[in-house]
């Protein structure tokens, strides 16, 4: 795709809100750095247990003022609060939860994703070597029951992020089931990417123009409801 099209999409907070609607009460959820972290702003009052891989279950809202405590931080190194029912544990137990299939949903950011549900998010080769900060991302992909991606549809420069083949190193192959962007909601199925929802004011054709793989248009295609 030679010409770069760029649409004004939803703000990051709204992508997070849309993802939050997909998380059922009672779920155990791990949120990655970036847009996924913002999802916690939309789950207050809903009984969703957030896991911080540093070693905490049921993290509360971000801490402020005198509540800030260096021994109470989430995996993004943000000071958080504890809630009734919170628990602490070490890193081995934390990854037993993650790898052992106990986390219902992991939501991650991505640099690239393809129609097979492969995604790249840990290494940006423009940085130098073909390595990066892998952190816990590959373990989450190996063990979470469902993997969602929340990201901007294209790069700031309008480069495609939803591509036919990854050019960046993969984080995991064939694991992503849902993709939430500032322009669309896409389900990843064995047949390919199914366009389920589009931002108000855009058409399926618009979305296809900024998407590498050929989209399957859902019969009940609708606007993203916020």
């Amino acid at each position: 795709m030679s010409q770069k099209v760029k649409f004004e999409g939803l703000p990051r907070e709204m992508i997070a809100l849309r993802v939050s609607r997909e998380i059922k009460e009672g779920s155990y959820v791990n949120l990655g750095i970036g847009i996924p972290t913002l999802i916690s702003n939309w789950t207050e009052g809903v009984d969703i247990v957030l896991q911080a891989e540093i070693g905490m279950l049921k993290t509360g809202s971000l801490a402020e003022g005198d509540d800030v405590d260096q021994d109470l931080i989430n995996a993004s190194c943000q000071a958080v609060t504890a809630l009734p029912g919170s628990s602490y544990f070490d890193i081995v137990e934390s990854f037993a939860m993650i790898r052992g299939g106990h986390i219902d949903i992991a939501v991650m950011g991505a640099l690239q994703i393809n129609a097979r549900g492969d995604y790249a998010g840990w290494s940006n080769p423009s940085r130098g070597l073909f390595v990066g900060n892998v952190g816990g991302s590959m373990d989450l992909c190996a063990g979470a029951k469902k993997l969602f991606i929340a990201m901007e549809h294209t790069t700031k420069d309008g480069e495609l992020k939803i591509v036919n083949e990854l050019s960046y190193p993969a984080t995991a192959l064939g694991k992503v089931s849902m993709l939430f962007t500032d322009l669309a909601v896409i389900e990843i199925t064995p047949k390919g990417m199914v366009l389920k929802e589009v931002m108000a004011g855009l058409t399926a054709k618009d979305i296809q123009s900024v998407t590498g793989p050929k989209l399957i248009i859902a019969k009940d295609l609708k606007e993203i409801e916020l």
Binding site: D69, Q70, A82, D90, I91
Partner: peptide
Amino acid sequence: VYRGTMRQFNPI
């Protein structure tokens, strides 16, 4: 004994 999220890699 540990406190809050300070535990992480320390015990292993």
